[in-house]
Design a protein around this nucleic acid. Sequence first.
DNA 1: AAACAATATGCTAATATAGAAATATCTAAA
DNA 2: TTTAGATATTTCTATATTAGCATATTGTTT
Lengths: 110, 110
Amino acid sequence: MTRHNLELYSLKAELCKTFADPKRLIIIDELRQGERTVGELARVLELPQAVVSRHLAVLRERGVVKHRRGGTSAYYSLSDQKIGEACDMVHQILLDQIEKNKQLAERLVA
Amino acid sequence: MTRHNLELYSLKAELCKTFADPKRLIIIDELRQGERTVGELARVLELPQAVVSRHLAVLRERGVVKHRRGGTSAYYSLSDQKIGEACDMVHQILLDQIEKNKQLAERLVA
DNA sequence: AAACAATATGCTAATATAGAAATATCTAAA
DNA sequence: TTTAGATATTTCTATATTAGCATATTGTTT
């Protein structure tokens, strides 16, 4: 462990934890298209407003999203363009896995 | 939710879960340098062999690592180059966050 | 086959997390 | 300042996850 800074890895793990929930990934993808209010996200996710608010709090605490108030609404957006890019990488990795499984399946049939 | 495929996002979330632990992130970084046995990783991580084996099982089940047996040892390696790149992105996001906090702190002092 | 080395798996306790429901807080407008 | 709309927070329950310990499995060697 001497070669690795555990504290740094813990921070990275905390960041990854925010990505480790399907609903939050959808929220992130929505926010990539632009600002959204809590209510809008709740409608898209088909989740109670309180649950969405909780997810947004998680994302906020880890600095993944930022928000501004406009009237009675809170407008959320991604705090860093790179977050979207990271999600794209995860998407690619998943596609690679699916492709590999497909090839394996075909070999087994042949 | 109609616009979003929940099953796909669940798979992505599962993948991200494997990154959501500091020890596993260290394992991944070790494996980026090349193949490692369970024992080697246990020494680096200063964790009991059984715990490392469990972590490797998690990574294996999500297709993040692959392994081959050589003698009594099991040699693990990353199953996809892109996994390392994804970790780099997370690293960058974290550095961005730290930089932003630094700038904020400086503004507050001034 | 027996003994040994390396790895994997079951089980448990402690901790963390998501969702639900109720309630509190904040903002705009009357 | 009262009311209504939008968002945030608290509490509770069910579920999941990690580490530790003991034990099982697998492969090698004699």
